[in-house]
Design a protein around this nucleic acid. Structure first.
Lengths: 132, 132
DNA sequence: CTTGTAAATGTTATATTATTACATAGTGTT
DNA sequence: AACACTATGTAATAATATAACATTTACAAG
């Protein structure tokens, strides 16, 4: 059911790698892993990452400079993202909570600014790390 | 009324610079600006930045790799931060909205994770840039 | 089918952001 | 004075990201 027929060769290679990974991947770790597939330069990786972020197939975890596959099938474009990050084991998951996203998408203050995008990162200890 | 008596020499130099700046500052721009004051190496800047972030005098804008002085006098520790970022002029302001911060500080989902910190970045066009 | 154009690729070099490692100096106790 | 803790100084390097330029591919319009 997964669509990815519009992805180019490099984009597909890189998306598949990130998608299979258990956690967020860093650009140069991706580079290392795809060198056997002929992708040799950082720029090739960054270009694919940029495109994949743009179309919402992956998200960037800004506080970690790392990239994770979108875990929310309905997410076509990365304009409303929320993540939980364990500060001990660095596990990251995408939060999909409709109340939260509704609240944030509708948020406005008295600044006169119209918000069309947000990114939220929660930090804490995951279940496993808490009990250690 | 501003307290900063605990800051060391380098911390004070760097905080004063960021505090006077109109917007977020990047580490190497800070470095360039404080070289006349005897701070010569990146590490001296990063150490001061780390400390200032830790004690809540400044915040890091993760999506921009830049640092801004805390605009919220009650903010002692950076554990609940929200910013609005104009994608055109790159103006950044700290959002202090008690409903928002209450909502996010109390947020929990079914992951079993206890969140003790969050960072939220809103993106859009500011008033000025909208009307252009 | 060929021409135009946008997207993607390949390659080298370089810019930007951040940390490691090690030595020294100041600050505030007890 | 001895101790612990924080901060500083310095050099080297690691990690993250982009600029510039040449070429190729995909695919729609004529």
């Amino acid at each position: 059911m997964e669509k990815q027929h519009n992805l180019s060769k490099n984009q597909k290679i890189i998306f598949d790698l990130i998608d299979k990974s258990r956690g967020p991947m860093k650009a140069y770790s991706i580079l290392f892993n795809v060198q056997k597939k002929g992708i040799k330069a950082p720029l090739q990786v960054y270009r694919a990452l940029d495109k994949l972020v743009e179309i919402g197939k992956i998200h960037k975890i800004e506080s970690r400079n790392a990239f994770i596959a979108c875990q929310n099938s309905s997410c076509q474009i990365s304009k409303a993202t929320a993540f939980s990050i364990c500060e001990s084991c660095e596990n990251v998951s995408e939060i999909s909570n409709s109340k939260l996203s509704k609240y944030l998408s509708n948020f406005s203050d008295n600044s006169g600014m119209k918000y069309n995008k947000y990114n939220l990162e929660f930090f804490g200890l995951c279940k496993k790390c808490k009990s250690k």
